[in-house]
Structure formats: structure tokens, C-alpha cells
């Protein structure tokens, strides 16, 4: 029960309370750039969710088996070259940024080729967004969050498993979709408004984003309250 509750809280937190865009302010470039129409925003949101899930999957595997201190795969390979006590202490987390970017870029390329071959209709609708997401900071942020939950913990039993990581990624993507679709809806209506000249364009978009972020601040503390209610100490 506690595992399910944990998953539920991670999902709620990623989607609403600690929304990637409106709480952490990552992924602002597509949030401002591709939010002019609701259907475009929806396409971008789906693409981000999709890529984020794949990236989180890869990130969890790479972190657990290669990067973290005492990771089994790197320990085993290093065991051939260096003494066992040195091999057990190898910490490759300094490589996390470059390896994650590497994994994200490769997986996006792979997914693009796959979708183009087998789902041409899908490719036409969100294929243009896929290369844009390669360098999206929200994806890297999800990977780094997952890494911090695996590497930084004191008790190895508390390290996040694959299920928690994927939950964070999927619902982080859902939160991104919610934010960008709300933004798209607001911007469609904004076109009919008489905006003062200095505020037109990106300026008003950033102001609206800020107000939206303040509105989402209303969720702050809900996760702590829920956690206390579900799992009393």
C-alpha cells in the first residue's frame, strides 16, 4: 500500500504541485514557442511526454547499472583492469549530464525513425516537434531528478525503482501538457485582446506564464498534507 501511495504522490506532485514548467521553470522554450494554438500545444505536450518517458527509462538503466557508485556493470568491467577494491569505488556520476544528453538525443533520433517508418500519420502530426525536444531542458531535468533520487539517498533501499522513475516522467509530461495547453488556450484568446504595444508578443506570454505559475502555487503543500494523511508517521 505504501508503494502505491508513493507512486500516487509522485504522480500528483509531478503533474500539478511541482509542475515542471510552472514550478521549476524548465522547458520554457517550447512553452513560449509552441503555445500559439491549442492543437499545436497538445502535439508538443504528447511528444514531450513520450520522449520524457523513454529518456527516463534509459536514464534509470544507465544510472543504476553504469553511473552510480558501485554500479554492477561498471564494477564488473573495471574489475578486469583494476583491483577489486578500486573497481567497487568507481563513481561515474560526473558523467551524468553528457551521458543523459547523449541518451536523450539518440533515443529521440531512434523514435523519430521508428515513427516515420511505421506511423506516417503520427509523424506528420508531431514529427516536427521531435527534433526540438532533443535539447529540451525539461527532459534533462527529469533525468537529473531521477538521478538525484537514486545516487543521493543514504539508504539504498530508498533509491527509486523503475516504476517510480517512469511515473515521474509520464506525469511530468502530463503536467507539461496541462501547462502548455492552458497557455495555448489563453494565447488564442489573447489574439482578440487589445494589448498595449510594449507588451505584445513574447512579453505578454511571459507575463501570462508568471500569473499562471502563481495560480499553480496554490497547490503548494498539498503533497505534504496528503502524505501525512495517507501515511501517518
Amino acid at each position: 500500500m505504501s508503494y502505491l501511495a508513493d507512486i500516487f504522490l509522485i504522480a500528483l506532485s509531478a503533474a500539478l504541485i511541482n509542475n515542471f514548467v510552472l514550478y521549476y521553470f524548465v522547458g520554457i522554450c517550447p512553452f513560449v514557442g509552441v503555445s500559439k494554438r491549442v492543437e499545436m500545444a497538445l502535439g508538443m505536450g504528447f511528444a514531450v511526454t513520450f520522449v520524457m518517458t523513454i529518456a527516463a527509462f534509459l536514464c534509470w538503466i544507465i544510472t543504476t547499472f553504469i553511473l552510480m557508485p558501485g554500479a554492477p556493470l561498471s564494477k564488473w568491467i573495471a574489475g578486469f583492469f583494476v583491483p577489486a577494491n578500486v573497481a567497487a569505488g568507481i563513481d561515474l556520476t560526473i558523467l551524468s549530464y553528457i551521458v543523459y544528453i547523449f541518451a536523450i538525443a539518440s533515443s529521440v533520433q531512434f523514435v523519430e525513425m521508428y515513427v516515420r517508418k511505421f506511423f506516417p500519420a503520427l509523424y506528420r502530426s508531431f514529427g516536427v516537434f521531435l527534433p526540438l525536444i532533443t535539447t529540451n531542458c525539461a527532459i534533462l531535468f527529469a533525468c537529473l531528478t531521477i538521478m538525484s533520487k537514486i545516487v543521493g539517498v543514504d539508504n539504498p533501499a530508498d533509491a527509486w525503482d523503475l516504476g517510480r522513475s517512469l511515473t515521474l516522467a509520464i506525469f511530468g509530461g502530463v503536467g507539461f501538457t496541462i501547462a502548455i495547453v492552458i497557455m495555448g488556450g489563453i494565447r488564442e484568446d489573447l489574439e482578440l485582446c487589445d494589448i498595449p504595444k510594449p507588451f505584445q508578443g513574447v512579453a505578454i506570454t511571459l507575463i501570462v506564464g508568471g500569473i499562471l505559475a502563481m495560480a499553480f502555487m496554490g497547490f503548494t503543500g498539498v503533497d505534504v498534507g496528503l502524505r501525512n494523511a495517507i501515511m501517518p508517521l
Binding site: I62, I66, A78, I90, L92, L95, V99, F102, A103
Partner: peptide, 12 residues
């Protein structure tokens, strides 16, 4: 450490 890091990146 340097060699292992480089080797890891190369392998990936």
C-alpha cells in the same frame, strides 16, 4: 578515473 570515464563514454 579518467580512463574509466573515457572508456564508459566510448562504450556508450
Amino acid at each position: 578515473t579518467i580512463l574509466i570515464s573515457a572508456g564508459t563514454l566510448l562504450g556508450l
